[in-house]
């Protein structure tokens, strides 16, 4: 018989399976086209919004850069964002006009750039009525990254919303906060935001634990 209330709570929990790097060949499993494999019936990829999706169509682009300043060419990213109304569409469905989840990878063709084609997310409400500025959660996987790194992409043309965002403000250093802001670029008719992720050193991107 076991004496109740004696064992610390943590010992009654199973340990999480330990993480390992996704490695340089992650594409075989999660980005088949980049590996050179034929597509299956449906693939999870970098177009979150179809032409029918509500909201402002945007492109997100960037590079993942290591501590030497070199582009990480085997990086894979996962995006998670609200729709234009600030709601998460949790049911992934490629027949739906918008999906909150997508994947992309650094590609050889674009010199190590990744891209997402999506709509600008709306502000997301917190239970207390405050709002988080429009943002995209990004997870970074790569060779040499032992546990995926989580960051958030914010938009430089949302200054007021950014200034009021409780999560952005939880980053104490204003200098570091700036690493989370994507910069709008003119790219013809397409509205494009650039977001370089620096894994280490000067301008190191803020990564979150949650």
């Amino acid at each position: 018989m076991h004496q109740p209330n004696t064992r610390p709570l943590t010992q009654s929990l199973l340990k999480e399976t330990a993480s390992q790097t996704a490695g340089p060949y992650v594409h075989i499993g999660l980005a088949l086209d980049i590996a050179g494999l034929p597509p299956r019936e449906e693939e999870i990829w970098n177009r979150l919004a179809s032409d029918d999706a509500r909201g402002e169509r945007i492109e997100l682009v960037g590079r993942v850069i290591d501590g030497n300043g070199d582009t990480v060419r085997d990086a894979l990213l996962e995006a998670w964002q609200a729709d234009a109304d600030g709601e998460y569409q949790c049911r992934f469905d490629l027949q739906a006009p918008f999906n909150s989840f997508g994947r992309t990878a650094a590609t050889v063709e674009n010199d190590g750039e990744w891209t997402f084609s999506t709509v600008k997310p709306g502000a997301v409400a917190l239970p207390d009525g405050r709002k988080m500025a429009p943002h995209v959660n990004l997870a970074v996987f790569a060779r040499g990254v032992n546990v995926q790194l989580h960051t958030r992409l914010y938009f430089d043309d949302e200054r007021d919303a950014n200034d009021a965002c409780p999560i952005l403000n939880s980053v104490e250093s204003p200098t570091r906060r700036r690493t989370l802001i994507a910069i709008r670029e003119e790219a013809g008719e397409q509205r494009r935001y650039r977001f370089d992720i620096r894994l280490q050193g000067e301008g190191e991107t803020v990564f979150f634990d949650f």
Binding site: D66, G67, N68, D70, V72, A142, R143, G144, V145, L149, I167, S170, V171, R176, L199, Q200, G201, E204, T205, V206, F207, F208, D209, F210
Partner: peptide, 11 residues
């Protein structure tokens, strides 16, 4: 060269 030097920001 691929590990952050700064601490993770805890939410």
């Amino acid at each position: 060269a691929r590990s952050p030097r700064q601490a993770l920001v805890s939410l």
